[in-house]
Design a protein around this nucleic acid. Structure first.
Lengths: 173, 173
DNA sequence: CCTTGACCTGTTATGATATAACATACATAT
DNA sequence: ATATGTATGTTATATCATAACAGGTCAAGG
């Protein structure tokens, strides 16, 4: 299933700088799914078949997917084929911190750092549409500071940047 | 039209900490529109009647508006009443830096600092739906740094935070 | 046991947001 | 005046998202 064994230290998955590189990520899926089970257990919620499958689908593609794309895959696996099926599963994953919603793309992506209380920043390549989830605590800190200065309390934040990944930058040059 | 005259230093408009406060902003609109004319001139683009009116509409409401809401207002003023009329005008405004798109709300808001090359951060109050446009250069700097570290070039960034404004926080308590 | 209540899944139907494609009009420069 | 690029308007359709209800599962308490 995976071409190398490890716990949580795969450079291809845990380092944002390799998120744009081609790499085997079957094991990422393994890791994340295992952790997802643990997180659901902890939170007292159920990672039911549809929900788990939705997460697997996101993990497999390793990119942002629209709700209808996920739905199509779910339906192919014998689950319902009406929009709420996908939206509900995805909403659950987002609530539990197992997936992120990327508004710029009207899409969803599996979280590669579930349960780690991270401050995700999405770097969206306009060349190849890949999405890297970088951990950027300093960004969140700066945001909290700016908000605090005017008495605003941040509960959730979306940081999405559009630009060019290293590969596409090189290709363009 | 405005109850006090000034150039670009109205606290109610230029200070993010007052963005949530009730304040007269007829003059903000005046200022921004004047600057919008100048910017269009500079950029060699035309701030045509629909476009200008769309900006006025956003400025009047002083909040984020959906494209269809803007469309309704435009139609009432004798412009076309089909979606592309609004989307095109809004797209123009966004491209010229005269308005911002707030994806979390599927909405648009006039930029209160046109032409100033700012790093806007949107603070969206989930209590009253007000949107404050804070200038947060440090946030952008942190984002650029995180992106640069992995060779990603940021071209455009959206930073949107959901939370509670001072007034709603107090009301909740 | 078996019922109740909470939650999950599925469906129908509709609502909300956004764009493609084409036709018409207008500006400006030669 | 006429050609060219740009702007506006329209029709039609694509895409994204949710409301509302029906049936199913499962565990806790009577």
């Amino acid at each position: 299933m995976s071409n190398h064994a490890h716990d949580h230290d795969c450079p291809g998955c845990s380092s944002p700088d390799l998120a744009f590189s081609r790499h085997d990520h079957a094991h990422c899926a393994q890791d994340v799914l295992a952790r997802a089970d643990a997180i659901a257990e902890e939170n007292g919620v159920r990672l039911t078949p549809v929900r788990r499958r939705a997460l697997e689908i996101l993990l497999e593609s390793h990119r942002a997917m629209g709700a209808y794309d996920v739905l199509q895959r779910l339906a192919a696996d014998g689950f319902g084929n009406q929009p709420p099926v996908a939206y509900r599963a995805l909403e659950f994953l987002v609530e539990q911190g197992l997936a992120h919603r990327i508004r710029r793309l009207n899409a969803f992506a599996a979280c590669m750092h579930p349960g780690e209380d991270h401050a995700p920043v999405f770097l969206i390549c306009r060349g190849c549409n890949a999405v890297a989830e970088a951990q950027a605590a300093p960004v969140r800190a700066a945001l909290d500071a700016a908000a605090a200065a005017i008495g605003f309390s941040v509960e959730r934040a979306n940081v999405e940047a559009l630009g060019l990944c290293p590969a596409c930058k090189e290709a363009a040059a």
